[in-house]
């Protein structure tokens, strides 16, 4: 009988994301996973309330807290190995922690591991996984050969969170804080990633093209970007007309961006600009000219005046925001 275990890292504050990723991996999870454990690794700073809150989110009935002095993979591996049975499946989030754990656990237990998976089918007999290969050009399906099966999720997977169960959680705690830790890493200094802001890291970008017509048009678009909480960028004709600053330039001589969503406004879609936005998750093109090349390279197109559409979009989003605040 297969047991499905979930391993979560409470040293990181994104447990919900980890669970969502793991749920995104497999639709069977909600049913079958109950048979196994959720391991939550964290430090001694977790109090009973924290633990209770985390246990409630866990997708299994049985929750095991592993308390460590610091995030040390060796200690976690030891702990997982101790409780392991033949046929077990271990599921991890997409972080480098999840990836490392999946690979090491698979190797150490003579099982198999798969990393960065988009999908996993966990039947009683065979385990299949799907993952992107060849720089995201192809989706590969693999059959996993040996038990136990250790699988980490792909970045950005999103699955429905398990509903809070009615049944009581069974909570256990394993305290590893008193153990001897191998000391191969010392003097560790942590620096938090500064939200660098700007176009390179923005998840939502509005790019203005020649269709903004003049400085006033570009300024209006920049304000619209602010209104919809998007970063503002511009095509080469716009910056070379000094309608926007040079550091707003998107494309081969400026920023190559990869936001989740990119709206282009009055952009024709010249090769030099498109190369800069090609990696966007979702492209929305607004242009008066329905024959502009950009209209065939976007996910969604709107044939209309870009200023008018964006003004309307800003109003629509402001209203939505107000509703949400009220609901809170």
């Amino acid at each position: 009988m297969k047991r499905f275990h979930v391993v979560l890292n409470a040293f990181s504050d994104d447990i919900e994301k980890q669970i969502s990723e793991i749920c995104g991996l497999t639709e069977y999870l909600l049913e079958d996973v109950k048979k196994g454990n959720t391991f939550i690794v964290g430090d001694g700073k977790m109090d009973e309330d924290d633990k209770h809150r985390l246990a409630e989110m866990a997708p299994t009935k049985s929750v095991i807290f592993v308390i460590l002095k610091n995030l040390h993979t060796e200690m976690i591996l030891d702990c997982l190995m101790e409780t392991m049975c033949f046929g077990d499946v271990y599921l991890f989030g997409s972080s480098s922690f999840g990836q490392e754990m999946a690979i090491r656990l698979g190797k150490r237990s003579d099982g198999s591991s798969a990393t960065g998976c988009q999908w996993a089918a966990l039947s009683e007999s065979i385990v299949y996984v799907k993952k992107q290969v060849y720089s995201n050009h192809m989706m590969a399906t693999f059959c996993m050969e040996n038990s136990p099966f250790c699988i980490s999720a792909a970045r950005g997977l999103e699955g429905a969170m398990p509903k809070a169960g009615k049944s009581e959680k069974e909570i256990k705690t394993i305290d590893k804080t008193k153990d001897q830790y191998p000391a191969n890493l010392t003097n560790t200094i942590f620096e938090e990633k500064k939200p660098s802001g700007g176009l390179q890291t923005a998840s939502f970008v509005l790019v203005g093209g020649r269709g903004v017509k003049n400085k006033a048009g570009a300024d209006a678009l920049a304000r619209a970007a602010e209104g919809i909480h998007a970063e503002f960028g511009a095509s080469r004709p716009v910056v070379m007309n000094a309608w926007a600053a040079m550091d707003k330039l998107i494309g081969v001589s400026g920023s190559m961006i990869h936001p989740k969503v990119c709206i282009t406004a009055g952009v024709s879609g010249a090769a030099a600009l498109y190369a800069g936005i090609e990696k966007s998750g979702f492209i929305i093109a607004i242009n008066r000219d329905e024959n502009a090349p950009i209209m065939r390279k976007a996910d969604v197109v709107i044939v209309d005046d870009c200023q008018e559409v964006l003004r309307a979009l800003q109003i629509c989003m402001e209203k939505e925001r107000a509703d949400e605040t009220q609901a809170d």
């Binding site: 591991s113 989706m139 693999f142 050969e145 996910d299």
Partner: peptide
């Protein structure tokens, strides 16, 4: 010797964008 994962299938991920008109 045998790999951990054996390849069962490869399919192309469609990179084109549909250009749905709103």
């Amino acid at each position: 010797l045998q790999p951990d994962l054996s390849l069962v299938n490869l399919e192309v991920i469609d990179q084109s964008r549909p250009g749905v008109i709103l």
